[in-house]
């Protein structure tokens, strides 16, 4: 460190490079934030890892030891199937969100400035409305004595109420409804950046609408689709509230199983092992999507 630049004097005359280097005071000021992250993100994750190798005694208390037993239980076909189902539901939700949301994002991105602001506000209200409320809205629609059954029987399309709630379709509808705005907004961000001249050039060079779409628009919006996938796929895997409310106990996903281990079954070590496997899944899919995105933008 430069002995001439005493910390007591204002740094006005010091060289820019020295001026920018963090000294102990800057470190001291940054400490609360770094400590916060270490204490409430790094350490808890480390403890989760430790717990996943522990055992529990008959009373449900955690006994410190080193065992792979919890992970062996995760490999049980019952749990593997639940993991597979969770990934399947999340993937289906993501695909539906892309297919449904892409034209909307495209429409908003290509609209005139005034319309764009209005349509964006229209996406923002559901985006910010609590997903709990939006999920409850679907209960009122899908319930046996709910709106949809009422309307169908009033029009005498059905004579006995259909089982709509607590089915896999209800879960997927709820997930799509919860996450659709999170897909529309990032894709919109990419669409907005597309230079109209590129589309025009493709037309001029003789590309038909389909060709323009697959060769110009899709590649240019892939970063947005990737960002939307991050916001939809990963959270949807572990979302237990929507599956609890709309799926009942019929279709447990991994989030429900983890929650159950911590709250009802009180098998924390096994819950921690399930959590660590989910963490691995999260890290891998996150890394893959990020890498794909970097390649696309590069």
């Amino acid at each position: 460190m430069d002995p001439l630049a005493s910390p007591a004097a204002p740094d006005a005359k010091s060289l820019p490079s020295d001026h920018r280097r963090a000294r102990w005071r800057a470190w001291l000021l940054l400490t609360p934030m770094v400590l916060w992250l270490v204490a409430f993100v790094v350490v808890p994750t480390a403890i989760l890892l430790v717990y996943s190798f522990c055992e529990r005694d008959e009373l449900g208390r955690v006994v410190f030891s080193f065992t792979w037993e919890n992970y062996q239980r995760v490999l049980d076909p019952v749990y593997l199937r639940i993991f597979g189902r969770s990934i399947g539901y999340a993937a289906l939700t993501t695909v539906i969100c892309v297919v449904v949301g892409f034209p909307v994002a495209y429409c908003i991105g290509r609209a005139s400035e005034a319309w764009r602001q209005r349509l964006l506000l229209l996406v923002m209200v559901p985006f910010w409305t609590s997903f709990l409320i939006r999920t409850y809205a679907w209960i009122t629609i899908l319930k046996e004595e709910g709106l949809l059954n009422g309307a169908l029987s009033a029009l005498s399309i059905v004579h006995a109420p259909l089982d709509l709630l607590y089915t896999p379709s209800a879960v997927v509808i709820g997930l799509v409804y919860a996450y659709l705005p999170f897909m529309i907004l990032p894709i919109y961000g990419s669409v907005e950046k597309i230079d109209g001249a590129l589309i025009e050039a493709a037309h001029d060079l003789g590309a038909g609408p389909l060709r323009v779409f697959t060769s110009v628009i899709i590649p240019l919006t892939l970063p947005g689709i990737a960002a939307g996938t991050l916001l939809v796929f990963v959270p949807a895997i572990g979302m237990f509230a929507v599956t609890d409310l709309l799926g009942g106990a019929q279709v447990p996903l991994i989030g429900n199983v983890i929650q159950n281990q911590f709250m009802q079954a009180r098998d924390w070590p096994f819950g921690a092992a399930l959590g660590m496997v989910f963490m691995l899944l999260f890290a891998v899919s996150y890394g893959l999507i990020l890498r794909f995105r970097r390649e696309e933008t590069a």
Binding site: L30, V41, V43, I47, F278
Partner: peptide
């Protein structure tokens, strides 16, 4: 590294943050 650390809570699935804080 600090920057990456600040990004983790934003992307980490909420249920993982929930159970790790509970255990902590």
């Amino acid at each position: 590294g600090i920057q990456t650390l600040t990004a983790i809570p934003m992307v980490m699935p909420e249920i993982l943050m929930g159970i790790s804080l509970l255990i902590f």
